[in-house]
Design a protein around this nucleic acid. Structure first.
Lengths: 333, 333
DNA sequence: GCGCGCAATGCAACCGGTTGCAAAGGCTGG
DNA sequence: CCAGCCTTTGCAACCGGTTGCATTGCGCGC
C-alpha cells in the first residue's frame, strides 16, 4: 500500500496537520518542523494523494479536454500543445474522445463525476450548444476553435472564419481567377458556414468572377478527394478554397490522380497551415491559423476562470495570415 | 455546490448507506428502496463523485497513458484507439506527454499522485527501464510497442521488430535489388536496432546483395527527408527499408525533389501502414503493424492486471504482414 | 404460535487529506 | 517580571463516499 500522511506523521513524531502543512504552500510551519517532516517523507517516499486532497480543497487540477477531431492531423499539433501546456502549469488533461456513437450528455456527466475543475472543448465542428451544456453544469468552459458570437454563453478562443473566407476570396481574385470554388468541410459545421459566407460576401459583386461551392462530408483526406473526384467530370473551377489543409491535400491527390497539374490547371488554397502543409511534394498555399497562440490563450483563460468562475464569457479572436507556397498561380501584375 | 450523497439521503429520508448501495452494483437493496433513492437522485441531479469513492475502493478507474510520440501521425490512430477503447470500458485515460525536457521520474510521481490504477506506456522509442520505473512503484504497467524480451520486467505488447527487418530484407531480395539500404529511425531506439539486426541477418550471405545502413535522427518526415538528401550525393542504394512510414514519406519527398522516380529509380518500403500510407500520391508499400489488435490486447491486459497485480509479466507479439502498394518494383519472375 | 433464517437497513468507522479553532510557546515591550 | 501578541502546533471535524457489523423485520416451516 502507498505511504500516507499518517505514516509520515508517525515517523516524524508530529501531528498529521503538521505534515499536511509542510506540503501546502503558504501554510504556517517552522523551519525545524518542515525539515523534520521532509526527512521523514523522504525516507518513506511519501507522495501526497492529489485526489484525497481535492475532497477538501475542491480542486482536482484535472481539466476535461473534449474533442471529436481525432482523425485530422492538425489535431496532433493541437493535442501536443494542449497536453504540454496544461502539464507545464501543473494541470492534468482528462481526455474525452467524442465519437459519433457517444451521447454528448454523457461526457458532461463523466467529467462531473471526475470533478474536473474546468473543461476545454477543442473543436470547430461541435455546435455551441455542446459547450453550453458544461456551462449549465456550472463548469468553467472554454470553446477553443469555436464560433465567435456577440452574445457568447461560454468563453471562445478562435479565429474569425468569415474573415478567413474573405481573405481566401480576396487572394483568389488577386490571382485573376475568373471561376473560383469553395470546397467546404461538413455543411453543418459553423466553421464551414462562416468561411463560405465570408468567401461569397467578398466575391459578391466582383465583376467577372464566378463562384460555385460544395461540401465534403468531413474534414479529411478521403472526403476531400471524393468531393474533388465528383467535381472533375462536372467541370472544374480554376481554383478552390478548401475547408482545411487535409481536405486540400485530398483534393490535390484527386486532381493529380486525374492528370491535372496543381497549380498549373487548378489552384488550391487551404486553411490551418498544419505541419504537413510545408512538406515537400505538398507545399500548400494556405491561411495560417495561429494554433500556438490560440491554445496558450485558451489555457490562460481556463486558469483565469478557475479563480473567477463568474467572469462574463469572453471571446478572443486571433487573426489569420496567408502563407504563400506553391499551389496558386502568381498574382497578376 | 454539487449534489452529494447526503443530500439525496435526506430528500429520500434514508441513510447514506442506502444511497451508496443503490449506486453500487451487486449491493443488497430492495426494489422500493432503489426506486425511492433513484427518484430523489434524479430530482437533484445527483452524480456520484468518482474520486471520493476511489478513496475507499482503492480504484480510480484512471489509467495513465504515457507517450513521447506526439509528432508522428501514426500516433493519431494510436491515440484515438486507446482513448476510445478505454472509455468504452469505463476507464479514463490520464495523458502524460513526455517531452525531452521532462524528467521521466517526474511522470511516475505524477501518476502516483493521481492514484492511477495502471499505466500504459505507448512508445517504441522509450527504453525498457522507463516502463520498469512504474513497476517498481507497484503500478501495473503495459509497454505497448515495447521490445519483446525473454525475461520481461513488465508486460509488453508489440511486434517482433527483428522479424520485420527480416521480412523487409526478404521482400527486397525477392525484387532482385542488388544494393539495398536501411534508413533507420533514431539509432538508440530498440525498435531501430532490432529492425536493423533482422534486416542484416536476413541478407547476410545473400550472394550479390550489398547492404548499407544509416539512421535518421527521429521518426519524422523532416528527419527522413534530411537523411535521404544526405545520401543522394553519396550514391544511393536501389531500394531502402525505412524506419517507419513517416520517415519513408520524407525520404520519398527528398528523392522526388531531386528528380528521381519512386519506384523507377529507387524503391521504398516502410513500416506501420498508417492511414496516410494509402493516400493517393503516396501509395507506400509497407509492413503492416496490427495497431488495432495491439491496442485491444494492451487494454485487455491492463484490465486483467487490475485484478491480478502479481501476474508474471507477459509478452504478446503480433505478426506483421507486407502490404503491397506502389513503391517497389515488381517481384522477379 | 413460535423459532429460525435471510434480506434489508442503519450506524459508525474509515479512506487520505485539510483546516478552523484553541492552546501552547516564544518573543517583545514596558 | 509580567502582560500581550504572534507564531507554531495539535485536536477534531469535515470533504464525499464505502463497508463491516449489528439490528430490524419479514416470511416460512413446523
Amino acid at each position: 500500500m502507498a505511504v500516507t500522511l499518517k505514516d509520515v506523521a508517525e515517523l516524524a513524531g508530529v501531528s498529521t496537520s503538521a505534515v499536511s502543512r509542510t506540503f501546502t504552500a503558504g501554510a504556517s510551519v517552522s523551519e525545524q518542523m518542515r525539515a523534520k517532516v521532509q526527512s521523514a517523507a523522504q525516507e518513506l517516499g511519501y507522495r501526497p494523494n492529489a485526489l484525497a486532497s481535492s475532497l477538501t480543497t475542491g480542486r482536482t487540477k484535472l481539466i476535461g479536454l473534449v474533442s471529436n477531431n481525432f482523425h485530422n492531423p492538425i489535431f496532433l499539433e493541437v493535442f501536443d500543445r494542449f497536453t504540454r501546456g496544461l502539464q507545464d502549469r501543473g494541470l492534468r488533461p482528462l481526455i474525452v474522445n467524442l465519437t459519433d456513437e457517444t451521447d454528448p450528455r454523457h461526457s458532461v456527466e463523466l467529467l462531473l463525476q471526475y470533478s474536473v475543475d474546468a473543461v476545454i472543448v477543442a473543436s470547430s465542428t461541435l455546435p455551441p450548444t455542446f459547450a453550453n451544456a458544461f456551462r449549465r453544469a456550472d463548469l468553467p468552459v472554454v470553446h477553443t476553435f469555436g464560433r465567435p458570437s456577440s452574445t457568447p454563453q461560454v468563453d471562445v478562443v478562435g479565429i474569425d472564419n468569415v474573415a478567413c473566407g474573405a481573405l481566401a476570396g480576396r487572394t483568389l481574385r488577386a490571382r485573376g481567377y475568373s471561376h473560383v470554388g469553395f470546397l467546404g468541410g461538413p455543411e453543418d459545421a459553423t466553421s464551414t458556414q462562416d468561411r463560405l459566407y465570408g468567401f461569397l460576401s467578398e466575391l459578391d459583386g466582383s465583376p467577372g468572377v464566378r463562384v460555385t461551392h460544395s461540401f465534403a462530408r468531413a474534414y479529411s483526406f478521403d472526403a476531400g478527394r471524393e468531393e474533388m473526384r465528383r467535381l472533375i467530370p462536372e467541370g472544374l473551377a480554376e481554383a478552390y478554397f478548401c475547408g482545411d489543409d487535409v481536405l486540400s491535400i485530398g483534393a490535390m491527390a484527386a486532381l493529380r490522380g486525374a492528370g491535372l497539374d496543381v497549380p498549373g490547371d487548378v489552384g488550391l488554397i487551404g486553411l490551418n497551415d498544419m505541419e504537413m502543409a510545408r512538406w515537400e511534394g505538398i507545399d500548400l498555399t494556405t491561411i495560417q491559423q495561429p494554433i500556438g497562440e490560440i491554445i496558450e490563450r485558451s489555457i490562460d483563460r481556463v486558469i483565469y476562470l478557475l479563480d473567477t468562475p463568474d467572469a462574463p464569457p469572453d471571446v478572443c479572436i486571433r487573426s489569420c495570415v496567408l502563407v504563400e507556397r506553391g499551389t496558386l498561380r502568381p498574382a497578376l501584375r
